[in-house]
Design a protein around this nucleic acid. Sequence first.
DNA 1: GGTGCCCTGTGG
DNA 2: CCACAGGGCACC
Length: 275
Amino acid sequence: MPELPEVETIKRVLALQLTGQKIKNITLNNPKVIAYPAADEFQRRLLGQSVETIQRRGKYMILQLANGERLLLHLRMTGCLLVTPPEYPLAKHTHLVFSLENGSELRFEDTRRFGRFWLLKKEEEDTYSGIHKLGIEPFDPLLTAQYLMAAYGKRRKTIKECLLEQGSVCGIGNIYSDEILFTAKIHPERQAFSLTEEEWKKLAEEIPKQLSYFIEKNAVTPDEYLQLQGKEYRNTPFLRVYGHGGENCPVCGNVLEKRVIGGRSSVFCERCQKK
DNA sequence: GGTGCCCTGTGG
DNA sequence: CCACAGGGCACC
């Protein structure tokens, strides 16, 4: 599910609910979700720790703990973090539950079980989670036309595939790559090296602009988030192309094309996004 | 670079 | 029944 805007939304909700909370108990229903270290050590080291701050890096969430350790999480496709009252019905694919000092629970659910946790010691170098391979944040002032050109400008891959990589600019997934390319008026199948300076400039503009727009549109209160069970994202009515294949382009009315690019389903307007 | 895989659920 | 789903990685 979650790309950067969704992870940011969840982060903002959890920050209100988890900051300062101590982990009193841990129930691990599916040890596979713990990528590192071994599940028993993971539980032993987390027990009794409290959450100091919550950060986001790319699509990863980072819980900074009072003892200097950090808990990392990647939600992948269907992962979901939710703070609930203890009596709240347990969802079917709940793999991990933290009971907190104030009586509430932090639950991790994930239907497809792709999501993973990592727990790193204070000064421990993280070569496990993949977070060390991430490129700059989309809101980094370093993200300029020049930066994009240097990163992708010689690549034969399509620009859509480049945007999905996390190594130069992180956080963009399949939905927002389509939205970004649509507003930048760039055909997703354009080979990266073929983009003009004007187009790199537009892209550098639209990447942070679109992502922050959707962060705004995502905004929920903790109550709303619980009601939506951390799953339904409210931003979908604002998506202009993703999920709208076969419908009319919101700009020119042309029928939107749906096509697999780099193994991912993609929607675009052949008239607005010239090849 | 492509392809398959990790998983479960849903919709055609 | 099969194709596909918002992510990422290993493996030719």
